[in-house]
Design a protein around this nucleic acid. Structure first.
Length: 110
RNA sequence: AGAGUCGGCCAGACAAUCGCGGUCUUAAGUUUUUUUUAAGACGGAGGAAAGUCCGGGCUCCAUAGGGUAAGGUGCCAGGUAACGCCUGGGGGGCGCGAGCCUACGGAAAGUGCCACAGAAAAUAUACCGCCCCUCAAGAUUUAUCUCGCGGGGUAAGGGUGAAAUGGUGCGGUAAGAGCGCACCGCGCGUGAGGCAACUCACGUGGCAGGGUAAACCCCACCUGGAGCAAGGCCAAAUAAGAUCGGAUCCUGCGACCCGUAGGCGAUCUGGGUAGGCUGCUUGAGGCAGUAGGCGACUACUGUCCCAGAUGAAUGAUUGUCCUCGACAGAACCCGGCUUAACGGCUGACUCGUUUU
RNA sequence: GGCUGGGUGGCAGAGUGGUCAUGCAGCGGCCUGCAAAGCCGCGUACAUCGGUUCGAUUCCGUUCCUAGCCU
């Protein structure tokens, strides 16, 4: 599947919409907030703060991995808006464990 | 072969598949523009992109003016758009050496400070001492010694301290002292070399009179303020009230004054909006050659276009190879500095051992 | 992204070129039948690395951490 701009949360109002009544999923690596939208596909928003991961290289790595995983699994996620909030444990996790952790989280949302 | 010094370059490689953002072309959709989708081509993070410590461009404030204040720089010359940077030279320090380090103006313009210890910490002074003289006492070898009061000389020695008023030696003296002499250091003058910092030589003075200027300060030079969240354009939204001043006033002007421009605004409380476009990458640009210069660098010619995102693009998986991959991610743009860091390649040079 | 400020014991918080107050907390003792209060005593600090200075928490640079402002 493609991952163009229509599959991302772009505006502050989009984020506010999700945070008003979210489904929360907690894991050591990250927290997911999800809420059903009225579109026919899922959308992804990223929230990777400097407080969680200090170095820009680490933040970019996490964002790339999440986007890639969402691209591969997004078709199964129906019409949810999902916000990914990073946590500090991601710093020491390798790529494979992050990918498998994300797959489990997508599974929970469905 | 070993030990070391200085500089330059690189920043895992290749392949396949699936993706991300940019530019261009073509096609589809749209009344048109914008925009969306699809295909193809081209290119897509760094040597530090980092810290924001300096300097500049750019934008707005007036075209960026004058003075004071404040801040910065500080051996000399050059380079540069500019610099607190770089290059070359000088002084000082370190190293056998190649080489490295260096906030390195002024303390006889003035003010301040120098704890404790010490006699004294800056107009000098004299604690223990040393020496001379007067007086008195004692001893005896009767002109010497010892001790004490008083007057004077001295800064050699001791002791304190981070620091004590040139150093060493000889002469000299009652004891001493730049008191005299030699050498060294220092100041001044003249001459020579050098653009200069400075160096050298000669003469002369008899010692200037502690340290601290990353204490105030003096001297020379430099600096107007704010920062792309600057600034410009389009669109949307809301509710007003109070105070002050209205030409000896207010604002631009955010250290102050002058000067200048404009003139109905200024401040506070409350309420509302905060979406898009632009600025946005052709530049003090890269590469090559020639010429000038010890060098930093500059000039000319030719050639190339090399990220431009905006919830923010470089990734994932698999395979092969090796030395098994560090530090780390552009956000207006450049020039430096500083800090982080696994290694590899290469050039020039130094030391020292052996062999020829 | 840009611009400002601050780091002093376990906590709060003064200070300034000459070895850093004070309060709370902690520990020990006195007092008490036991505690509380009170009294006496003790220990523990100038973020880091360099430089200037005889001497630095203070002055000057570097780094690290932390807070705030501009949308």
């Amino acid at each position: 599947m493609k991952f163009s701009k229509s599959a991302r949360l772009l505006k502050t109002s989009d984020y506010d919409y999700v945070f008003q009544a979210p489904i929360k999923i907690h894991q050591p690596l990250a927290t997911l907030y999800a809420r059903s939208n009225n579109l026919k596909h899922a959308r992804l928003g990223l929230l990777v703060s400097k407080r969680a991961l200090r170095h820009a290289v680490a933040r970019n790595r996490v964002k790339r991995l999440v986007r890639e995983s969402f691209r591969l699994h997004g078709a199964q996620l129906k019409d949810y808006d999902i916000i990914f909030v990073a946590r500090a444990a991601l710093l020491n996790a390798d790529n494979a464990s992050i990918t498998t952790g994300l797959a489990q989280m997508w599974e929970k949302i469905r």
